[in-house]
């Protein structure tokens, strides 16, 4: 049996407004397996961010079911959802969303504090996460003094610290140049190698394709195609339709 860290079934989302209802998700099912990096691709407005927000327990679906690390989200309160996010989900945002008044290290510590790390263990874990993204030498620098690539690496360290089951990244390379984008994707691929963790990356950057183990293409709120990399040795775009 495959070890799914996250399973979403028939997710729909409807935004009701006076101008009429908008339905960015029209029945989407997704499974994220531990040890895999899944790419979520699709044109702008196809519902990628909405899906990611639902998978990350930031939004509630209008219908459908979601399980994260074995926990069902149905009927959870806002605090219950926050609790699930805190314990099981790490986020990486396009615009980094680092706390500007905290240093790189403190930003990572903040995530650890949220996840209940004690004063004794947090510093080691934070340094570990920062060195995993190769930023130990920038630990005491404020976000405003970091480059875009560095900021995104700090935010990966923040997502990673405390070892959540699922890491969700929304266009993490969109604001970066090619070199930094590649470095960030390489890091995320490395993060996904841990067999206790699944990674989902929303992207429409084709240069990121080689880092994915699987790819899901979404169009107009529906899954258009799924593909799986045929061989671990194939570095480039060689994805086969999923079985």
């Amino acid at each position: 049996m495959t070890n799914f860290m996250l399973e979403a079934r028939d997710i729909t989302k409807v935004y009701r407004s006076e101008a009429g209802d908008i339905m960015p998700l029209k029945g989407v099912s997704v499974e994220l397996a531990a040890g895999e990096l899944t790419l979520l691709m699709g044109p702008s407005g196809s519902g990628k961010t909405t899906l990611l927000s639902i998978l990350g327990c930031i939004l509630s679906p209008t219908s459908g079911s979601l399980q994260i690390a074995g926990h069902a989200t149905a009927g959870l309160s806002a605090e219950g959802m926050a609790g699930l996010r805190r314990r099981h989900v790490g986020f990486v945002f396009q615009s980094y969303n680092l706390v500007p008044t905290l240093t790189a290290l403190e930003n990572v510590m903040l995530a650890l504090d949220l996840r209940g790390a004690s004063r004794a263990e947090a510093p080691d874990l934070a340094w570990e996460a920062l060195s995993a993204v190769r930023l130990s030498h920038r630990a005491h620098v404020m976000p405003s003094k970091l480059s875009g690539g560095e900021k995104q690496r700090v935010s990966i360290a923040r997502a990673l610290a405390g070892a959540p089951s699922v890491i969700l990244a929304d266009e993490p390379t969109a604001a970066l140049d090619s070199e930094n984008g590649q470095a960030v994707m390489a890091l995320l691929a490395e993060v996904a190698r841990d067999t206790r963790r699944a990674v989902l990356v929303v992207t429409h950057d084709h240069r990121t394709l080689k880092y994915g183990d699987r790819m899901i293409r979404i169009e107009d709120g529906r899954i258009a195609s799924r593909a799986r990399r045929r061989s671990a040795t194939v570095a480039d775009v060689e994805l086969a339709p999923a079985a």
Partner: peptide
């Protein structure tokens, strides 16, 4: 480096009563 550096992966058990970080 990417292959040589292990990703931190210790899960975080919630501990009651342990001293918290002064992040707040």
């Amino acid at each position: 480096e990417a292959t040589s550096i292990a990703m931190p992966g210790r899960p975080m058990p919630a501990r009651k009563g342990a001293m918290r970080l002064p992040m707040v």
